Amino acid sequence: MKNTIKIISPILFLLMIFVYLNYFSSYVFPWQKEDAIQTTLNWGGLAKLPNNIENLKVQKEGTLFTRTFIIEFSTNKNEVENWIANSKRLKSNIPKLRRKNKIYDVYPGENESFGGTVKIEGNNVSIKMSWS
């Protein structure tokens, strides 16, 4: 009986850590990354990410009942402008200007999502889309 407990206890502990990381932390596992990117683009009515991106970061926030994805990347100015022109919800959207930032509000989002914002500062793009 003691041997069984010694074996099951670490397994349960590892399972609890995995569940926490998967559902409650901001960490995106490598096998979730592509799905998180595609979901974010779908919720925002955004075009596929440019091919020549650098410093790609993908994060998530929320609980079992809410989800927010944050994507950040850098690329050249022409790629950013082409990406905006090809994005259904950005091409006719007039951004708010705050200092050197262009902020596009996308509310409501596509596919019954809450929506979010796209912030562009020079060559850096930050996308934040939510569902609740």
Results as ranks from 00 to 15, higher is better:
Ile94Tyr: 07
Met129Tyr: 02
Glu61Thr: 05
Arg99Ser: 15
Ser130Cys: 04
Val28Ser: 02
Val118Met: 05
Asn86Gly: 09
Lys60His: 11
Ile127Tyr: 00
Met129Thr: 01
Val19Asp: 04
Asn55Trp: 01
Gly45Lys: 02
Ile127Leu: 08
Met16Gly: 12
Leu49Trp: 07
Leu15Phe: 13
Met16Pro: 00
Glu121Thr: 13
Gly62Asp: 09
Leu46Met: 10
Leu64Met: 12
Asn55Pro: 01
Asn111Ile: 12
Lys91Phe: 15
Ile94Leu: 15
Glu79Asp: 15
Leu56Trp: 12
Lys100Ile: 12
Ser126Cys: 04
Trp31Ile: 13
Val106Cys: 01
Phe13Asp: 10
Glu61Tyr: 10
Pro50His: 02
Asn55Ser: 14
Trp43Tyr: 11
Phe29Pro: 01
Phe73Asn: 03
Trp83Gly: 06
Leu15Cys: 14
Leu90Val: 08
Met1Gln: 11
Gly115Cys: 07
Lys119Ser: 14
Ile84Met: 06
Asn123Ile: 15
Thr117Ser: 06
Ile7Asp: 03
Val106Gly: 01
Ser25Asp: 09
Lys2Tyr: 06
Ile70Gly: 00
Ser26Gln: 10
Ile71Gln: 00
Met129Ile: 07
Phe69Asp: 06
Pro30Gln: 09
Arg98Trp: 09
Leu46Ala: 08
Pro108Asn: 09
Ile127Phe: 03
Pro50Cys: 02
Thr75His: 04
Lys77Phe: 11
Pro95Arg: 04
Ser130Tyr: 05
Gly116Met: 02
Met1Leu: 13
Ile94Pro: 08
Met16Cys: 14
Pro95Ala: 07
Asn52Pro: 02
Gly122Phe: 06
Gln38Ala: 15
Leu97Thr: 14
Leu56Asn: 06
Tyr20Met: 07
Leu49Gly: 04
Leu97Met: 13
Phe24Glu: 04
Ile37Ser: 10
Lys48Asn: 11
Glu81Lys: 12
Lys128Val: 13
Val106Glu: 00
Lys60Phe: 11
Phe69His: 09
Val106Trp: 03
Thr66Gly: 08
Leu97Phe: 08
Ile11Lys: 03
Val28Tyr: 00
Ile11Ser: 03
Gly45Val: 00
Asn93Ser: 09
Lys91Met: 13
Pro50Arg: 01
Lys91Ala: 11
Asn101Ser: 15
Asn22Met: 14
Lys119Glu: 15
Tyr27Glu: 10
Ile7Pro: 00
Arg98Gln: 15
Asp105Thr: 12
Thr40Pro: 00
Ala47Gly: 03
Lys57Phe: 05
Glu34Lys: 07
Val118Tyr: 04
Tyr20Leu: 10
Gly122Ser: 07
Asn55His: 10
Thr75Leu: 08
Ser74Ala: 13
Lys91Ile: 14
Phe18Lys: 04
Ile71Trp: 03
Glu121Cys: 08
Ala36Gln: 02
Gly115Tyr: 01
Val58Phe: 03
Glu61Lys: 11
Asp35Gln: 15
Ser9Arg: 10
Leu41Phe: 03
Phe114Arg: 08
Ile7His: 01
Thr68Arg: 12
Asn22Arg: 14
Lys60Ala: 03
Phe13His: 10
Gly122Ala: 05
Met1Ser: 14
